[in-house]
């Protein structure tokens, strides 16, 4: 008779206990994510920050990187990025405009463009590296060069850049288009004067996001822009990017550890700045609650 309340109390206790366990597990998981991040940042900062100074940023690489700075590396990285953006941005904006303004969303062509982009987005970067080596470096005869590397990176960031641009343009409220059309404006004017200016912050966010991807890339560059740590004299010279430099110092240069960490500091600061810029641009675009990682396209 009085076992009823007792049992229910036992169930209640068990419930509490289970909830407690779940709560602890969730907090431990969340906290450890933060800890891992802090650990990595702290590790890099402690081992590398001491080496970072103005000289390090501009001096030549000496003794395979054990001595000197990363001046040429920063220059090469910048040039590779530049080539990548000069090619990828117009291609992506053009494709995004075609997908949003010109093609029926459900048309055969539009669906296949999207499907190709999804496949491209899933291709590992080392495969882009091998492709870039075979096509740009060998078939087109560009050799190991900044041009080959930049073009390979452009191929790699196309899917992200097109998808973010497409979303940016689609996010512009239809009322703007209707208002503009009702005023007798032509399609191209509506696009360039009304729609694109509104989409601009979100478009810029996509570009910044792609820069982040490109900066972090190693595998696609090893076989295309190569290892050469000298200051490049033209886009046809080989040039070493920051991430390749870190890889090389860490893997192939005994005693290169502290310079690798110092380079990593520079790269991480750049990436953090880019993340902040993305968040800021998205907030300007009123899209801050959307994914800023680009992982979910």
């Amino acid at each position: 008779m009085d076992s009823g309340p007792a049992t229910s109390r036992a169930i209640e206790v068990r419930h509490h206990w289970r909830e407690f366990c779940v709560a602890v597990a969730v907090w431990v998981a969340a906290t450890s994510v933060i800890c891992v991040l802090i650990w990595i940042l702290a590790d890099i900062a402690i081992r590398g920050l001491a080496e970072v100074n103005f000289g390090f940023l501009i001096e030549d690489v000496q003794d395979a990187g054990r001595v000197g700075g990363i001046g040429p590396i920063i220059l090469s990285t910048g040039l590779i990025l530049l080539v990548c953006l000069v090619v990828a941005v117009p291609l992506s904006f053009g494709t995004a405009i075609a997908l949003t303004e010109r093609l029926d969303k459900e048309s055969w062509f539009a669906r296949n463009v999207r499907r190709s982009l999804d496949v491209l987005a899933g291709v590992p970067s080392i495969v882009f590296g091998l492709f870039g080596n075979a096509f740009f470096a060998i078939a087109l005869g560009l050799g190991y060069s900044i041009l080959s590397g930049g073009l390979t990176l452009a191929c790699m960031v196309l899917p992200i850049l097109i998808r973010t641009s497409e979303q940016a343009i689609r996010a512009v409220p239809a009322e703007y288009r209707y208002a503009a059309a009702a005023l007798g404006m032509k399609r191209t004017t509506i696009l360039f004067r009304v729609v694109l200016p509104v989409a601009m912050p979100a478009l810029a966010a996509g570009v910044v996001l792609s820069i982040g991807r490109a900066l972090a890339e190693t595998a696609a560059l090893i076989f295309t822009s190569g290892y050469v740590a000298r200051t490049p004299e033209s886009l046809l010279d080989s040039g070493r990017s920051l991430s390749v430099h870190i890889y090389d110092l860490a893997m192939n240069v005994p005693g290169g550890g502290s310079k690798a960490y110092a380079t990593a500091c520079v790269l991480v600061v750049l990436l953090l700045a880019i993340n902040a810029a993305t968040a800021l641009l998205l907030r300007l675009a009123g899209l801050h609650n959307r994914s800023t990682t680009g992982g979910s396209l």
Partner: peptide, 19 residues
Amino acid sequence: SVELRRHIGMIFQKPNPFA
């Protein structure tokens, strides 16, 4: 249509000035 809309203007329910 561009020519047509020069002669027939439209006002919408929600004011929609450009940004």
